[in-house]
Computed example of a mutant assay.
Amino acid sequence: MKKLWVWLTVIVAIIVVAVLGIVISQHQSNHKSMESSNFTKNQTPTLFLHGYGGSANSEKYMVKRAEQRGVTNNTITAIVSKEGAVKLKGKLKSGASNPIVKIELEDNKQGYLDKNAKWFKNVLVKLQKEYHIKHFNFVGHSMGNLTFAQYMMTYGKDNALPQLNKQVNIAGTFNGVLDMNEKVNEISVDDNGKPSRMNPPFQQLRALKDIYNGKNIEVLNIYGDLEDGTHSDGRVSNSSSKSLKYLLGDSPKNYKESLYKGKSAQHSQLHENKAVADELIDFLWEKQEH
């Protein structure tokens, strides 16, 4: 009789756990469905690019968060070989909403911006050839932002290529990197983002203002401050990231800066930060009220 009670208790416990699992799963599904209704649904792909020494794993958390929030269920990876050849892992589904392309550069530790820019262009050309894309969004971290700036410098006026809609810059190294060409608290920026000293290739990047002019591009610039007196994320100074404002001027349709503070705002933690991920998701895909 005692064994029977034990078995009954076990069976009841299993049933309770199963029911709770179904209820929780249903609640999460309903919540995801409700939240996804707040986002636009279009076929414009968003390309994520990592920084120096990074990989597609650098983009993993942000992309996963977009999936969790019901923004997209179509993510592929574009792997760029050391020779610049592009291989796509996965397929962009016909009619998929807000597809995401994670870019991984196999040669992720070379600093020639012209080469990186060409590799980024190769990804766009591959997507254009296979999926006939006409527009794209961009999310970059660290040096990935400088790569993209060089891409826009070199190819931004080529109307035969897919055109940029929105860009998100995270921890951008637009005017230097600490302990490389800048010391802690050495450079400041004024209210317009103009730096007190311009490190190469900042002067050349000033041409971006003309390239962005009249294209209705929206820009979100995210940076981090450890609040340890360095005015940096530990790797990139706030002044370097904020100098993007001076490069673009009033050319974008809109430009927004967003500062994150504390340990979770450390350079590599910014792309693992839930609040950062949620802000860029809302910026890229949230429905606009008219």
Rank of each mutant, 00 (worst) to 15 (best):
K3R: 10
V6N: 08
W7S: 04
V10K: 02
A13F: 09
I14P: 01
I15V: 15
I15T: 11
V19N: 06
G21D: 12
V23N: 08
V23I: 14
Q26K: 11
H27R: 13
Q28G: 07
S29T: 11
S29N: 14
N30V: 08
N30F: 03
H31P: 00
K32M: 13
S33M: 08
S33N: 11
M34V: 11
E35F: 09
S37K: 13
N42D: 14
Q43I: 14
Q43Y: 10
Q43C: 04
Y52E: 03
Y52F: 15
S55Y: 09
A56I: 06
A56V: 08
K60G: 02
Y61M: 09
Q68F: 09
R69Y: 10
G70S: 12
V71K: 02
T72D: 02
A78Y: 04
G84M: 10
A85D: 15
K87M: 04
L88K: 06
L88N: 03
L92H: 03
K93L: 12
K93Q: 14
S94P: 02
A96Q: 05
S97F: 05
L105C: 01
L105F: 14
L105P: 01
Q110S: 14
Q110L: 08
G111Q: 09
L113V: 10
K115F: 03
N116E: 14
A117R: 00
W119F: 15
F120M: 14
K121Y: 00
N122V: 08
N122F: 04
V125D: 02
K129T: 13
E130I: 06
Y131Q: 07
Y131A: 10
I133K: 06
F136P: 09
N137R: 10
F138A: 15
G140C: 06
H141L: 12
S142C: 07
T147F: 12
A149Q: 14
Q150C: 02
Y151K: 06
M153K: 07
D158L: 07
D158K: 11
P162Y: 10
Q163T: 12
K166W: 06
N169C: 02
I170P: 15
A171S: 07
T173Y: 00
N175C: 03
V177D: 01
N181L: 05
N181V: 04
V184S: 02
E186V: 02
E186K: 05
D191G: 12
G193F: 13
G193H: 07
P195I: 01
S196H: 03
M198E: 09
P200K: 14
P201C: 12
Q203W: 01
R206S: 07
D210S: 10
Y212R: 04
N216W: 03
I222Y: 05
G224T: 05
G224F: 08
E227Q: 08
T230Y: 00
H231K: 13
N238L: 15
K242P: 01
S243T: 12
Y246Q: 04
L248I: 11
L248A: 04
G249I: 03
G249D: 12
D250L: 06
K253E: 09
K263Q: 08
S264H: 06
L270G: 04
E272K: 15
E272F: 05
V276Q: 01
A277S: 13
A277V: 05
L280M: 15
I281V: 10
L284F: 07
K287N: 12
Q288A: 10
